[in-house]
Computed example of a mutant assay.
Amino acid sequence: MASSGPAEWYNTLPTITRFFGTACVATTIAMEFNVVDPFYLVLDWRMVFQKFQIWRLVTCFFIIGGFSWNFLMRVILIHNYGVGLEKGVFQFKTPEFLYMLLFGALTLLSISLALPGFNLIVLNGPFVFMLLYVWSKHYPTQNVSIMGLFQVQGFYLPWAFLMINMVLGGSPWQDLFGIFTGHLHYFLTELNPNTRQAMEPPEFVHKFIAWTNAGHVSQSYVQRQGPAGVFRGRGQRLGGN
């Protein structure tokens, strides 16, 4: 590990989390050096509906802010818990991981539209908190060190970060929206057997993962394609085949 350079470390990151983290860092650099005006990236529903600036529905998830302590902590959270999920619980279920992110993004966009009073124009914070919450539900007993100051079990991790944010003077609402979104997904996919099948990734998600070779397509989907399927890459090697 000591001989590995930054490029080698970067290439070992799982594809989807690597893309998201890179987009967040690149957006921060572009904003910091005035390459792009944040006004054109934040979620402005009036501009979306009236000017058809639909890119705002995506770029609002990449905005962290300028280089700061908050930026550093957000990048660490993306690395620790985004990578932790993609290489852990979702290691052989890349479509499920991507679909979870899409579900979370659509849920947060809906909350922003339905509750304009909360002024949710930047959704990176609640989106990352959603990842943190889902991770905590899958690893509830794992001990985690927070900034090297104290340890908590995974189950309490989102609430610990929520309290830290409040102590530092931040509003709890964005974190709570992220927790709500993460719990909604966990409830629909893990706790409620009546909704598990409905939460399975649709065909286009599987096709996208197979087309981009971004990860493992589920074995059941590969089998549905039959021997004449056009999909290749890691998806067909699932399960050691």
Rank of each mutant, 00 (worst) to 15 (best):
N143A: 14
L102C: 12
T59G: 00
L123S: 01
G82M: 01
S112F: 01
L157P: 01
L106F: 14
V128M: 06
Q151K: 15
Y133Q: 07
H79I: 10
N80R: 14
C60M: 05
I64V: 15
F150S: 08
Y133P: 01
I111A: 10
N70P: 05
G88V: 06
L120Y: 06
G88R: 06
L108M: 11
Y133L: 10
I63K: 00
W69S: 13
Q151D: 15
G154S: 05
A105Y: 06
V134W: 02
F103W: 13
L132T: 00
F92D: 12
N70M: 10
L157D: 00
W135L: 02
F129R: 00
W159M: 13
I78N: 00
L72W: 15
F92M: 09
I146W: 13
L57Q: 06
A114M: 13
M73H: 15
L115W: 14
N143G: 12
V89W: 05
L77N: 10
G88D: 08
T59A: 04
S145F: 04
V58K: 01
V134T: 03
R74T: 15
M147V: 10
I78G: 02
F103D: 04
H79W: 13
T59Y: 02
G84W: 02
K93H: 10
L108Q: 04
F71M: 12
M73E: 15
G84P: 00
N119C: 09
L98T: 02
N119Q: 13
I76Q: 13
V134R: 01
M73P: 03
L108N: 02
I64C: 03
L72Y: 15
Y139L: 08
G84V: 02
N119E: 11
G65F: 02
M73C: 15
S68M: 08
N70L: 11
R74A: 14
N124M: 12
A105C: 13
L85Y: 03
P95L: 11
M73F: 15
G82K: 01
P158E: 02
L132P: 00
P158Q: 04
I78Q: 01
L113A: 15
Y156L: 12
G117Y: 11
V83Y: 06
G148K: 06
W159T: 11
C60Q: 02
Q91R: 12
T94M: 05
A114P: 07
L106Y: 10
H79D: 09
G125F: 04
H138W: 12
G117D: 11
S110T: 15
P126Q: 07
L77T: 09
K87P: 04
M100W: 06
H138G: 05
C60G: 00
N143Y: 11
F92I: 11
L108D: 01
V152K: 00
T59E: 00
L149C: 08
